[in-house]
Write a protein that binds this DNA or RNA. Structure first.
Lengths: 163, 163
DNA sequence: GTTCAGTTGGTGACGTGTCAACAAGTCTGC
DNA sequence: GCAGACTTGTTGACACGTCACCAACTGAAC
């Protein structure tokens, strides 16, 4: 309230910055909605489901819950809840870990594997249709750059999505 | 399942495309979390709250619910729920519309106005700190461009976020 | 061995967003 | 004026994510 300088003269966003900020926010809202819609319609999956499944396709189709959470940058709590729901739909199941009675594996079921394999081509097509095929190679490159610059500081010392 | 061509040879994402796609998704997850955290901490608002309030600051600090929903590209249902919650916190209130008994205005309360005015400088600073000040003018320009290209088709003939 | 700090994962309560259904009101054409 | 179509906004059920908390377990120091 009384801190004099920080609040004093805010440097507002200029036109380009405002345009970029709105672009980012609208994409978060509309682009995500569109891609999620496609995914739900032709595979019955949410984007979150798709992510879990695709991060689970490895040599043996299983990962420790913590490892999976860290990899996806989800909180363990979020993942635990989500796994519970996916378990009820038969897409994954939990399994005990030998040698660490606290731990649990998340394992892709055959149905889960079938589902992700059938969903993948359509999902890629959807990402292409709504995003990639509208951008020039240069724009795609810059988008990647932006991610590196913005996410670098957050992924390191950032406030982890830990519980 | 048996449609031969569309599913046949999916054009997977190349390296730059994958990098851009991951960048977009990680930003959606981490950048949003960071900016929301700041906003919650120093103004007690969610990003959604902030948006509603800032879209409500006009000459007379009021808008029709539908108009506000369209402007924000929210569904009327979402907005109605959210307004109910903000109403309970004293940030906005509903008011009847003369001449259309179905309608209702959403009106900024004095407390709502104070809140947004106090929150704005810190929020801008947060957007700068986490995003804008990390980007070159060129990157900012391209991000705006990307928004135009991607959102154009969605905002027009897109599946409206209507109820 | 025992202690104790740290880790792993789960849980319940809560705020949020979506979807489908709905009531009430308005508008159009006749 | 009135039937039928459309609009406005609300609601309830549900899926999701966060937060705070917890129980069970592990591992290192002593």
């Amino acid at each position: 309230m009384t801190t004099p300088e920080p609040r004093a003269r805010p440097r507002w966003l200029n036109d380009d910055e405002m345009r970029a900020w709105l672009a980012y926010r609208r994409m978060r809202l509309l682009l995500s909605a569109e891609i999620n819609r496609d995914l739900a319609q032709d595979a019955g999956l949410s984007e979150a489901d798709y992510d879990v499944l695709s991060n689970l396709t490895t040599t043996d189709d299983r990962r420790r819950l913590s490892e999976l959470a860290a990899r996806m940058q989800w909180s363990k709590s979020r993942l635990s809840h989500h796994i519970t729901r996916m378990e009820q739909r038969g897409l994954v199941r939990r399994e005990e870990v030998d040698g660490d009675a606290r731990g649990s594996f998340v394992v892709l079921t055959p149905q889960g594997r079938r589902t992700i394999e059938q969903a993948a081509p359509g999902h890629v097509a959807s990402v292409r249709r709504h995003l990639m095929d509208r951008l020039t190679p240069e724009q795609i490159r810059v988008l990647g750059e932006i991610g590196d610059v913005v996410l670098g500081p957050l992924e390191d010392r950032g406030h982890d999505p830990e519980d």
